[in-house]
Design a protein around this nucleic acid. Structure first.
Lengths: 234, 234
DNA sequence: CGACGAGTTGATCAGTGTCAACTGCCGTGG
DNA sequence: CCACGGCAGTTGACACTGATCAACTCGTCG
């Protein structure tokens, strides 16, 4: 957390054993992985981690910060596919394809550990658990995508926004402030809306004392009310 | 194809070696799998293959027909997540969770091969390639989901409908009829629209001789035109 | 023959997008 | 140090897409 400003883009050894992902592989495994020289990289906002269509060389594990994965239409509209949170894997494409199928950019900043796919392949040959772990993570992602498809396809704007806020804050204990790392634009691109509609609902809910917002952080005041909105019963 | 009417719901030995999925595992593997008594099951439209929230006991491979995977909101709106085509795997949930996270129903009819997850687990222990194969398939699904999220989040109705038609027909050679296994309602639920809007665009394109429709089948007459619509340049 | 379900079409309305003006904040440079 | 410019966000007026409601056709099946 404290070394962000220091070494942007710096590459160092990645303490793999810290990650929940590989935790279950046990100590000797992380030694193996370390020897394979997986790297830890820092990114600042606006610098791409990878770009759709470019060579997919690494699998990433997010250590700190947030990453947005997005795709763009030919006309330049962006859709955010997923917000990656610490501990999660992203950049699966390289395991199957030669190029990435979406782009990855940090929200504010991000620290990620990356492993070259060819090394991962070698590793997978020795330790089949690796592929099992990735499979499990991948299935989880798929379930998450199912849910997002339901949101985008079957819910109206207020419902999407409400359930976004609920799920965004669910990690933090109730009545605590949650940093809102996303801009209005990014929320809009995540939910398939415009900046203005996002802004309007936020304003309304702040007036109605359903949520509070203060220096890039939000707090849900009336969880119950927000839930009824999310289920379109208001 | 010819034995549908005969034994609905019948269960028989599944000729696993026919599947592209496990083809690369070689002959001795499919023997193993056969001995594990994976089953082949026939389904008719309207009978569920599995229901969201129920015990996730099997992994499925579709042999013939089409299956729709869908989720429902609390208010009863359905969103189709994916249309499964022959050769594809579905029902990954059991490998990670105890229950299914969406429901699966055949479109018209379907013939699927299913493998109990616990057997798959045993098998995975012996033959790590199995999990690698599932991982690969799963990543493909994830890419597909990314694309669908872009469609639903960033495109207007005509664009969604046009690119749906294009992708639906892309398997069949140009100027040949493609069976349209989906009802208007199902197309609407897939694209996050209403029956009426689907119907209206179809009608318009038929008038403009962009597409033709005849007994449950469609044919694209003006691919180029449809593509410009899909990219919202018309 | 009649009833029902799927699909079509029209009229109307509501929800969001679009466009534009305005505020407030922050960093830059004179 | 202040002024300016620019960017993020807000708010209002308006337009338009797509949903809703309703009537009607057509084909199928009892």
């Amino acid at each position: 957390m404290m070394d962000y400003q220091a070494n942007d883009g710096a590459i160092s050894e990645c303490p793999v054993d810290e990650f929940a992902v590989f935790a279950e592989l046990g100590g000797d495994f992380s030694d193996t992985l370390k020897r394979m020289a997986s790297e830890s990289v820092l990114y600042t906002a606006a610098e791409s981690i990878y770009v759709a269509g470019t060579n997919a060389r690494h699998l990433y594990i997010l250590r700190d910060g947030h990453v947005k994965l997005f795709k763009s239409t030919i006309n330049g509209k962006d859709q955010i596919i997923r917000i990656v949170k610490p501990g999660e894997i992203f950049g699966f494409d390289g395991l199957v394809d030669t190029v990435y199928n979406h782009s990855a950019v940090p929200l504010k900043h991000a620290k990620a550990c990356r492993i070259p796919v060819e090394r991962l392949r070698l590793l997978g040959a020795q330790r089949p658990e690796v592929e099992r772990l990735i499979m499990v993570r991948c299935i989880k992602e798929l379930q998450h995508a199912d849910e997002r498809l339901l949101e985008l396809g079957a819910k109206r704007s207020a419902e999407r926004l409400a359930s976004f806020l609920i799920s965004w804050c669910e990690a933090t204990p109730a009545d605590r402030w949650t940093p809102l790392v996303l801009s209005r634009l990014e929320i809009a691109q995540l939910l398939g809306l415009t900046i203005e509609t996002v802004s309007r609902f936020f304003a309304q809910w702040k007036r109605d004392e359903v949520v509070e917002e203060r220096n890039q952080a939000i707090r849900i005041l009336d969880q119950k009310r927000l839930k009824t909105v999310a289920e379109s019963r208001a």
